[in-house]
Design a protein around this nucleic acid. Sequence first.
DNA 1: CGACCTAGTGAACACCGTTTACCCACGAGC
DNA 2: GCTCGTGGGTAAACGGTGTTCACTAGGTCG
Lengths: 239, 239
Amino acid sequence: MTEAARRDRKRADTDQQIRAVARALLVEHGAQGVTLRGIAREIGITAPALYRYYDSFEDLIQHVCSDICADLADELAAGLGLIPEEDTPGRVFAVCRGFRAWAIRHPREFSLVFATPAGPQAAATDPFGRIFLTVAGRVLATRTLVVPADPDVPPRLLADLTLFRATLLDSLAETGVAVPEHVFSLGTAYTMLRFWVRLYGQVALEVFGRFPFPVADAEPMFESMVAELATEVGLTAPR
Amino acid sequence: MTEAARRDRKRADTDQQIRAVARALLVEHGAQGVTLRGIAREIGITAPALYRYYDSFEDLIQHVCSDICADLADELAAGLGLIPEEDTPGRVFAVCRGFRAWAIRHPREFSLVFATPAGPQAAATDPFGRIFLTVAGRVLATRTLVVPADPDVPPRLLADLTLFRATLLDSLAETGVAVPEHVFSLGTAYTMLRFWVRLYGQVALEVFGRFPFPVADAEPMFESMVAELATEVGLTAPR
DNA sequence: CGACCTAGTGAACACCGTTTACCCACGAGC
DNA sequence: GCTCGTGGGTAAACGGTGTTCACTAGGTCG
């Protein structure tokens, strides 16, 4: 019994080592620097051995993506832990700033995860979906925001939004956060969506250097965007 | 003389053929389907011959990117041609919708051009910069928009914005559009920047399928975003 | 005519993902 | 205690990649 367990643990160890080396190669040499042979070389085995752990190169990459998302989620959660639960604006700002800071510190991971066309997979299933959703959900659970009335959301979007809300409520329930249904209106869901669009656009453009002109210091623009977003949502900016 | 000219034209022809085939492979088989040997095979030569035209694979890709940007610019300009110059809101909407439509119709080109981290190159120099800037500039030249007063732009961004404005004014002057300096305030430049951030975020998320939940029909969200953006800028929605 | 340039070739190099056959240590069952 | 099966690992090979290098056919020019 313990023998089998020991073997399982060893397997899990090398598995984790594989992913760690893959990520190291990603951050050091870019996406095209991560290669099966390179990984194997680094951990002292041969390339075909990796097929004992992953079905293909693509499969490995996908698992690396999951790891990256999990790390991002952990970092955001840690940053959130420093802020009292009552300070809703502070928590929103922490998540936004944390996301930007992480993206700037990990541009290649960001590109891999957020700028690779994902098939029509259930986005909320993928590990990133959970980050934004649970974090946002927790913020949402602690205090109600000012959101547009339901009639203001585009009618053709209602079906998608109701499904979104249901998914998020389930996900929150799993993590033990109970959100009263009446707090989570469709307008709230719509607001979260718009929030994410602007946050993502700002950060992606900064990481990719795709502003329409060379921006030397993008931080003030980011800060003003977040502040604007916060006031639109009815939060007063902290300090 | 004409002999040399004829040779030059032949060279230019094959050069264009190379880029066309590269692009065809990109749209058919994705980014990793475009390969020097594949291109050479398709046009009936061998791979090393391509080095007579480009320094490296990377170099070729970069030129393909330029072509893509040029085509996008042409398409936007054509769409703009159908709308009378006086109809400023119509022109703004045409550019936004045109950008989204193009991105959805050419997802792989979009990924290549807009989601590949670009070095700290002069963004306004790259072919895309010109699209957004000249189109926006022309719209801007025909009528003045309602923009925030200069004091509202983040002070730390002033340096970047003044440089941006100067670059854009030069670029516009080159294409024969004269914009009075007093029309083009720093607030205007800032507005254009924010406009682009939201437009890009929306379109990129849709193309990459990275909304926080599966969105079946993203068009209503796009439309409402553009409408919101337009009213913020002081344009009344057309029709 | 001979010299020169230029687009193109063919072979080679090092690397890649992947498959196949094989090997060998080791725990399980008799 | 002896097999036997299994799972991690290896070596070799296949087809593919970007890139380099020596070389060649063909046209231009002095």
